[in-house]
Computed example of a mutant assay.
Amino acid sequence: MRKKTAYIGCLGMIGIISTEFGVIGVLPQIADHYQVTIDKAGVLLSAFALVIALTGPFMTLLASGFDRKKVMLTAIAIFLITGIVSSFGPPFWLLLTVRILPAFLQPVYISTAIAAAVASGDKKHEHQLMGIVLGGIAIAMVTTVPLATYLAGIFNWKASFMVQTVVSAMAVFGIMKMLPPMPVTARKSYGSQLQILKQSSFLISTAMNFFMIAAWFSTYSYFADYLGKVKHMDEKMISYMLFLFGVTGIVSNWISGKMLSKSVSKTTAVFLSGTIFVPFALQYSGGNTWMTILVIAIWGFLYAPCFLNASAYMISAAPNALEFANSLATSFGNLGVSVGTIVSGWFIATSGIATPPWVGMCFGILSLLMIGLRTFLENKRGPVKCYS
């Protein structure tokens, strides 16, 4: 199993996640700076995700015939430009605009990086290679995301975008110098890839992905504001919690990669059960700081593999259209990010900051129902061909 390509893909993933989710820890500061409400500041996250959801599959189909190295390099270069402009603290409309631009190529990068990594190894290591690439999400959670929040507490929110700029620059250098050209030798027709949209198992898997990501991001999008106002933590403590959240996530990504090789559906359901456990645990931890810290550690462990599990679950229903299935997983996952953030923001505006975990639980239950429905249908008529 050759892992070099997977690790380079992981580096780029860290740059992407630093840009997309690095803003989560500084949303309260951004809201104060621009004199907007926290739910309106949340548009910086939800709009990014919505663009991915609406354009991801089309952009991935268009890019499917190009050299994978060039595609990855172009995508990360745009993330770099976004970080540079954002770090100057432009007007809110411009900040929103430059954050939206790289969103068009985010799913292209992810699906291309995963396809390149999987192509570099053998079939039995597919999920482990995917885990390495998507492990960049958890690594960003433990390094750049909390670091951005920590520096914002010392300086100001603009410092968080400087962190994103540095990471994106490193990713550009890594892809440029360490990856060989990767031309696509056997391009699949658009029609053959679109066939997966006729499969009921794949459509149910898509719904599961959407509900699962919406469940987690209903709460995670407002992580800093929730911990600050409900658990009464300061910015420094919140950055430590983000760090803890990421540490447990790195471990769980590795464990999930191993578990997926044995059962995709059971692994997905096990980690998804956290969307039901976490709201009750946060509620009953009350003002006990140590109990809250323990809950956050478990929360991070159960949350972190959600993108890996979602991709694996959808690919298992469409094994012959890996890149397109991956792009749809990314798009509908980001639609989940957008909807979860918007719906939770509405509940915050109407009922208070303590509501997001319960919103997440409702989405989580819907997601578990989708897993049950697909399992029922496959037991009735037989599993998807090549399903693993």
Rank of each mutant, 00 (worst) to 15 (best):
Ala63Thr: 10
Ala63Asn: 02
Ala63Cys: 10
Ala63Ser: 15
Ala63Asp: 03
Ser64Val: 12
Ser64Phe: 11
Gly65Tyr: 05
Gly65Gln: 13
Phe66Gly: 03
Phe66Glu: 07
Phe66Leu: 12
Asp67Ile: 08
Arg68Val: 03
Arg68Ile: 06
Lys69Cys: 01
Lys69Met: 01
Lys69Leu: 01
Lys70Glu: 06
Lys70Asn: 14
Lys70His: 12
Val71Cys: 05
Val71Trp: 04
Val71Asp: 03
Met72Phe: 05
Leu73Trp: 02
Thr74Tyr: 14
Ala75Glu: 00
Ala75Phe: 00
Ile76Met: 13
Ile76Lys: 03
Ala77Asn: 11
Ala77Val: 13
Ala77Ile: 13
Ile78Glu: 07
Ile78Trp: 02
Phe79Glu: 01
Phe79Asp: 04
Phe79Tyr: 10
Phe79Trp: 03
Phe79Leu: 04
Phe79Pro: 01
Leu80Gly: 08
Ile81Pro: 09
Ile81Phe: 14
Thr82Asn: 15
Thr82Ala: 11
Ile84Gly: 07
Val85Glu: 10
Ser86Tyr: 06
Ser87Arg: 07
Phe88Cys: 14
Phe88Thr: 14
Pro90His: 00
Pro91Glu: 08
Pro91Ile: 03
Phe92Thr: 04
Trp93Asp: 06
Leu94Arg: 09
Leu95Ile: 02
Leu95Met: 12
Leu95Glu: 04
Leu96Asn: 08
Leu96Ile: 07
Thr97Met: 15
Thr97Trp: 11
Thr97Pro: 06
Val98Ala: 08
Val98Glu: 02
Arg99Phe: 05
Arg99Trp: 04
Arg99Ile: 03
Ile100His: 00
Ile100Ala: 03
Ile100Lys: 01
Leu101Lys: 11
Pro102Ala: 06
Ala103Ser: 14
Ala103Leu: 13
Ala103Asp: 12
Ala103Gly: 08
Phe104Ser: 09
Leu105Ile: 09
Leu105Asn: 04
Leu105Trp: 12
Gln106Ile: 11
Gln106Arg: 09
Gln106Cys: 13
Pro107Ile: 08
Pro107Cys: 06
Pro107Trp: 03
Tyr109Lys: 09
Ile110Phe: 15
Ser111Ala: 15
Ser111Gly: 09
Ser111Trp: 04
Ser111Pro: 02
Ser111Asp: 07
Ser111Lys: 07
Thr112Asn: 02
Thr112Phe: 02
Thr112Arg: 01
Thr112Ala: 04
Ala113Tyr: 00
Ile114Pro: 11
Ile114Glu: 12
Ile114Ser: 10
Ile114Arg: 08
Ala115Thr: 15
Ala115Tyr: 06
Ala116Gln: 00
Ala116Phe: 01
Ala117Met: 07
